[in-house]
Design a protein around this nucleic acid. Structure first.
Lengths: 318, 318
DNA sequence: TTGAAAGCGCTAACAG
DNA sequence: CTGTTAGCGCTTTCAA
């Protein structure tokens, strides 16, 4: 029997008789044959893999192990990839990584690449090489992207706090070079302005330690702060620890709302009220887009950011 | 100029004059050429990638996004892979996934595969196909593995609690089909027996929710419990919430020691005293082993599990 | 429905 | 030091 026939049967292609099918399957089972991916990819020009690139800002690759975000994008992608029999290749690198690395990834990507956390510049750069790209964070104009309503979420959080009777609502923001952090900052400022409150802000670098330190300083300089909008749950967990450490109670003395709805929110005591970022859904959608190739330049898919009420907020004066 | 020469220069192989090198590099830059991975892999028989297989017990792939363990193994591997210019392919599947899937991965692995969380049976199965395998969890005898002192860690945790004056030390364990959970259970029982205490145990399924529920039940039936050994930080975070919810104080009324030293420990309020499992180090070591091929059947590398004191423990009567 | 033949883009012996 | 020659294991026309 010829290799062509075997190839057809193994790949489930049409044009093979029942008898041949059976013979091929028998032979495969007997010999324990397994397809060679490289040969397949080379011959067909297709590679059943999608690349995900994570370029954490600042703190380096270690971040990957400590920040719940990345595992959520992986978890979101996995089911859709698995059912399509596609592999996931993970590339983690510092922002300073040579552009060459990224371009080589782009050059070898056939199904596509998913940008978990890159700068718009890097995204644009990559997009020149390869059109099958989608970003999970706000990005350069032509690069297709998933966009969550970060600003709206932040705005809603402040309004929620305000509705609870809180009037001294401070914020702990993320790094200035992070697009998501910037949108959330914007949302906070807009809300505070609309509500006629005073903005009190600090930078928590998107880390628990940063959130802790920022809130400690904040309560020192603004001891009457009665609510905190914290731009990610990791920082919010630190914020709760800091509030508690000064002898104040969460949620009574200081109510706090986090952002993300990551595992950090669930693990805090009390569990955090937070703005849910639907990371898994976004990742699944991005993966789906890459798989069926329905990708147009500048494509944007919008996702809501919704309030999840737990126990780190309560009405003022209770 | 011939393809052979170009290949030599691009791969940094010896036997190419300076002039040729320059010409090749110039051409590469001018044409924007990028190597084709599949062709390379096929021709050389090497594939610069290592596969990591994650098969969470029970709850399915969603676990990946919620359990800090996986991202820690990725974080541990990444730096060593990056410096060796090796890719990481991630395969997540349910335990029920067909063995074929795993065997296909094995058949295509050249650098090796890292087992993040599989049963000994699956590991043994895979090992028959491919010898370049290392497990991160206790595994079948011939499969090389990284082994942390889970039992010793649990033992030490109980002793620490005892040294703090606690005498009613209950445990929240992980699932019965998890080798790590089993070792920790063993360590707890040994310690309790050696110290002449009574074992009080519950199952928390390695999840926050499970830990929360288990501790709530436990405090109902054994209200005088004054310490908790909890077999992972995620459950421990839930445990702290449960203790707090009953009006008790952590660490005063009930001291708790977790296990892992994951992000969940740092995010809890108060931050958890815990037994540190050096996951990143283990993953890095496993990756290193795979890379330099120094792999012998039955290889075991041992890692200590050390006490990290934070604020969820204090001396009885303070 | 099947088989023969021609590569996919590269690496690795070997010969010059 | 450089070029020539064979493949790697598969897919995919194209004929039969």
């Amino acid at each position: 029997m010829s290799r062509a026939t075997a190839s057809r049967v193994v790949n489930g292609a049409p044009g093979a008789s029942g008898a041949m099918r059976a013979r091929v399957h028998a032979a495969v089972a007997e010999l324990g044959w397994q397809p060679n991916e490289s040969a397949r990819a080379l011959a067909s020009g297709r590679r059943r893999a999608i690349d995900v690139i994570a370029m954490p800002s600042g703190a380096g690759i270690g971040w990957l192990g400590t920040h719940p975000y990345f595992s959520r994008v992986l978890a979101g992608m996995m089911p859709v990839l698995e059912s399509a029999d596609v592999q996931l290749r993970l590339h983690a690198m510092n922002r300073e990584a040579s552009v060459d690395t990224v371009e080589e990834i782009a050059a070898n990507a056939t199904l596509g690449v998913l940008l978990a956390d890159t700068t718009p510049e890097m995204a644009a750069r990559l997009y020149r090489r390869c059109r099958r790209v989608v970003s999970m964070v706000p990005t350069a104009a032509p690069v297709p992207g998933m966009e969550a309503d970060n600003a709206g979420g932040a705005y809603a959080a402040v309004k929620e706090l305000y509705g609870l009777g809180r009037r001294r609502i401070a914020a702990v923001h993320g790094p200035a070079d992070n697009p998501c952090a910037n949108s959330r900052r914007l949302g906070y400022r807009r809300a505070v302005a609309d509500l006629g409150l005073t903005a009190v802000e600090a930078d928590g670098a998107f880390s628990r330690e940063g959130g802790y330190a920022a809130v400690l300083r904040m309560l020192e300089s603004d001891p009457r702060t009665d609510a905190l909008f914290v731009a990610c749950d990791l920082m919010a967990a630190g914020a709760v620890q800091a509030v508690t450490a000064t002898g104040r109670s969460v949620p009574r003395d200081v109510s706090v709302i986090g952002f993300d709805d990551s595992i950090a929110a669930a693990c805090s005591t009390p569990p955090l009220t937070t703005m849910r970022l639907p990371v898994e859904e976004m990742a699944a959608a991005a993966a789906g887009l890459l798989l069926d190739g329905s990708l147009v330049p500048g494509h944007r898919q919008h996702f809501p950011v919704e309030l999840v009420i737990r126990q780190s907020t309560e009405h003022h004066g209770h």
